[in-house]
């Protein structure tokens, strides 16, 4: 019990602080808090893919936008409630995740980058041009408040607690996943795919599962976003959004879900704060850029990696010789 508490202490602190916060915040601050909660769900879903699954997706915004558009489109055409749309959101985003996972067991490194980026571009192009369904560039406006089985969440405070419910659920489910055979095998694959195969792990189904689950949670965040903003338009879901999401994960630490929550909180609140200083706000993209370069270095897709590996392996060899000499003596 004590160890469980210790392990999830950061998570508990964040949840308690955030749940109490609405007592003190004004409407504008509450909105930022809701955005942060959505970012937490979104970034945790990416951390499953990146930190556990070992795949850096540069197009995670695609799933967010699919979630947002699924609920928006259903409401626009059929006037269905949020709770009615929930299952379709899961299905459609899950299917999209499954689709993107198909080539993933056969490619690595820069090809993953290219494919995930292009996937997001394609999704965005479809949303922009499928006028009869998505209303194209115009976007869909007037999406009403969340309706849960007939109960309409009138205030933003209520909406905030709904998102916090999803934050908690996401965190709990991610932890179940990670501390199981599924999570362990996923980490094994991302550590060394060949050794994982040698232990009898089939890579393909694992890629399918991790992409599908990750997409579903990103979709849940996206669908909430549509109801928060009350409108969706294609330009919101650009690659910028994917990069921000990656930054949140990297700041919090790969595979560390409470860290991701801190990253999400930080990167949602900071830009809002920086808005006051036009100069700093303008250069925030440079910071994201730097984070991305670090991610790519860690993930072996740019020069310098060889050097890094050479240094570490020489160091290990040296250490071993020292040990061996010590033993012989």
């Amino acid at each position: 019990m004590k160890t469980i508490l210790k392990k999830h202490l950061l998570f508990l602190i964040i949840i308690v602080v955030m749940c109490v916060a609405p007592v003190f915040t004004n409407a504008y601050q509450l909105r930022i808090l809701i955005s942060a909660a959505l970012a937490m769900i979104f970034a945790m879903s990416l951390n499953l893919l990146m930190g556990i699954g070992g795949t850096v997706s540069f197009g995670h915004a695609a799933f967010y936008s699919i979630g947002a558009y699924t609920t928006a489109v259903l409401w626009y055409h059929f006037r269905t409630a949020y709770s009615t749309n929930f299952i379709p959101v899961l299905l459609v985003t899950g299917l999209a995740g499954l689709l993107l996972s198909l080539p993933m067991s056969r490619i690595t490194g820069r090809y993953v980058t290219i494919i995930t980026l292009s996937f997001a571009e394609i999704v965005n192009l479809i949303i922009k041009n499928w006028d009869p369904v998505t209303l194209g560039q115009m976007g869909i406006v007037g999406i009403p408040s969340v309706n849960l089985f007939g109960h309409v969440l009138k205030s933003k405070t209520e909406f905030f607690y709904l998102t916090m419910f999803f934050v908690i659920m996401t965190y709990i489910i991610m932890n179940w996943l990670v501390n199981s055979k599924l999570g362990r095998n996923l980490r094994a694959i991302s550590n060394d795919a060949i050794a994982a195969e040698a232990m009898g792990i089939k890579i393909f189904p694992y890629k399918v599962i991790v992409f599908t689950i990750s997409a579903v949670f990103a979709g849940i965040a996206g669908s909430l976003y549509a109801h928060l903003m009350s409108y969706v338009e294609p330009s919101t879901f650009n690659s910028n959004l994917s990069f921000q999401c990656i930054s949140m994960v990297v700041i919090g630490g790969l595979g560390n879900f409470s860290g991701t929550m801190v990253g999400a909180l930080f990167l949602t609140i900071l830009p809002e704060y920086l808005r006051r200083f036009e100069f700093l706000f303008k250069y925030r993209m440079i910071a994201y850029g730097l984070v991305l370069v670090i991610v790519m270095w860690i993930n072996h897709s740019i020069p310098g990696t060889k050097l890094k590996n050479a240094v570490t392996s020489r160091f290990n060899a040296l250490l071993h010789r020292k040990n061996a000499e010590a033993q012989e003596a």
């Binding site: 095998n185 980490r187 094994a188 550590n191 060394d192 050794a195 040698a198």
Partner: peptide
């Protein structure tokens, strides 16, 4: 070819 970022125990569990 170990799962280098995993614990010895997790390597065995895999």
């Amino acid at each position: 070819r170990l799962f280098s970022n995993m614990t010895a125990l997790d390597n065995i569990l895999v």
